[in-house]
C-alpha cells in the first residue's frame, strides 16, 4: 500500500468512525422529563435582593413612599429558594449537556463521566421510563473502585405535554459529602426534598430543607412554598428566622402581581413580639403604599385600598 492509499484508508476510517451522534427523538422525551430551572424558579420581579432586615433592627418608622422592607425580604427569600434549586439542578444540568452513553427503549444512562470538580470521582445518571408518562431517575457518584452512592433521586409524571406534570426529587448532600466535596450551605443539609407541579396553573414548587444534626445554624428544617400563575403573578411562603430577640421566627407570605406590586403578611412566631402581625404593600416601584403594624404601639400608614389585588394564589 503506497502513501496515497494509506492516506485514503486513514481518511476513510476517520470519517467512518466520525459517524453517529446524539440525534435522538427519544432522548428528547427523557431529557424533557428532567426538571428545569425555568419551570421551577421563583420569578419575583424587580430589584435584586437587599440585606435590609424585615423586622426588629429597623430604628426609624415605616412611611408610605419609602422602599418596601417586606419586598426586599421576599426578594432575598426568592433568591435563596432559587439558589437551592440551582444546587439541585446543577447536577442534572451538567449531565443533561452530555450525550447518553447507553440507550434502550425504556432507559437511558449517562456516564460514568468524570467529575471535573472532584478529581477521581465519576458520576452516572440512570433514567427509566416506567410507563408512557412516568420517569424515574437517580444520580450516583463514586470514587472508583468504591461503589456508587445515590446523591439525587427523582421521578416525574408527565401530562399530555412532556415538560408539564408533577415531580419529586431529593438531593442527599450528606451522602454526597462522603464521596465528594460539598460546599456551603449544602454541607449543613441532610437532604433537600422538592415537589413540583407544573401541569396547570398555579404552578407549585415545595421545598423542604432538612439539616444535619448539630448544624451550625441551629435549625432542623426550613421550608418554602412557591406558587405561580400564568399571568406572572406569584407567591412565596417561607419562615423568617433571625437572631433578633424581638422577632426570632416569623411566618411570611409574599404575593405579587405581574408588574411587581405586591403585599406581604408577617406573623411573629417566636420572640418578644410573638403573636404580633404586620402587613405591608408595595407598588410597581417597590415603594410602600400601605402598612399596618399589629402590635401595641404599632402604626399604620396609607390605605388598604392602595394594595394590589391579586387573586388565584
Amino acid at each position: 500500500m503506497n502513501a496515497m492509499n494509506r492516506t485514503f484508508a486513514v481518511l476513510a476510517l476517520s470519517l467512518a468512525s466520525a459517524c453517529g451522534g446524539s440525534w435522538s427523538n427519544k432522548d428528547l422525551e427523557f431529557l424533557g422529563a428532567l426538571p428545569s430551572r425555568t419551570e421551577l424558579q421563583s420569578k419575583l420581579p424587580g430589584l435584586s435582593s437587599t440585606s435590609r432586615p424585615l423586622l426588629g433592627t429597623r430604628q426609624d418608622e415605616l412611611a408610605v413612599g419609602e422602599a418596601s422592607i417586606a419586598y426586599a425580604d421576599a426578594k432575598k427569600a426568592s433568591g435563596d429558594f432559587n439558589g437551592l434549586l440551582d444546587s439541585l439542578l446543577t447536577v442534572v444540568d451538567t449531565i443533561r449537556q452530555l450525550p447518553p452513553s447507553q440507550r434502550t427503549a425504556t432507559s437511558r444512562r449517562w456516564g460514568p463521566y468524570p467529575d471535573s470538580k472532584n478529581p477521581g470521582a465519576e458520576f452516572v445518571l440512570d433514567m427509566t421510563q416506567t410507563d408512557a408518562r412516568t420517569y424515574a431517575y437517580v444520580v450516583r457518584v463514586r470514587k472508583a473502585p468504591a461503589d456508587f452512592v445515590d446523591i439525587l433521586l427523582g421521578n416525574f409524571v408527565a401530562t399530555d405535554q412532556l415538560t408539564k406534570g408533577a415531580g419529586q426529587l431529593v438531593l442527599l448532600p450528606a451522602a454526597a459529602k462522603a464521596v465528594i466535596a460539598v460546599s456551603a450551605p449544602l454541607d449543613q443539609l441532610q437532604r433537600i426534598d422538592v415537589g413540583y407541579f407544573t401541569a396547570d396553573f398555579p404552578k407549585r414548587v415545595d421545598m423542604v430543607l432538612t439539616f444535619v444534626p448539630g448544624a451550625s445554624s441551629g435549625l432542623s428544617g426550613v421550608g418554602y412554598v412557591y406558587r405561580e400563575l400564568a399571568s406572572g403573578a406569584g407567591a412565596i411562603a417561607y419562615q423568617f428566622r433571625s437572631t433578633n430577640a424581638d422577632v426570632s421566627v416569623a411566618d411570611v407570605v409574599a404575593v405579587w402581581s405581574p408588574g411587581g406590586a405586591g403585599k406581604a403578611a408577617i406573623e411573629v412566631k417566636q420572640g418578644r413580639y410573638t403573636g404580633a402581625a404586620k402587613a405591608e404593600c408595595w407598588n410597581d416601584d417597590f415603594k410602600i403604599t400601605y402598612f399596618k403594624e399589629g402590635w401595641a404601639g404599632g402604626t399604620t400608614g396609607g390605605e388598604p385600598g392602595a394594595c394590589a389585588t391579586i387573586e388565584g394564589l
Binding site: W23, G32, L34, R96, T163
Partner: peptide, 9 residues
C-alpha cells in the same frame, strides 16, 4: 425545550 443541541454525522 430544555435540552441540549443534537448532532449527527
Amino acid at each position: 425545550l430544555p435540552v441540549p443541541a443534537q448532532s449527527f454525522s
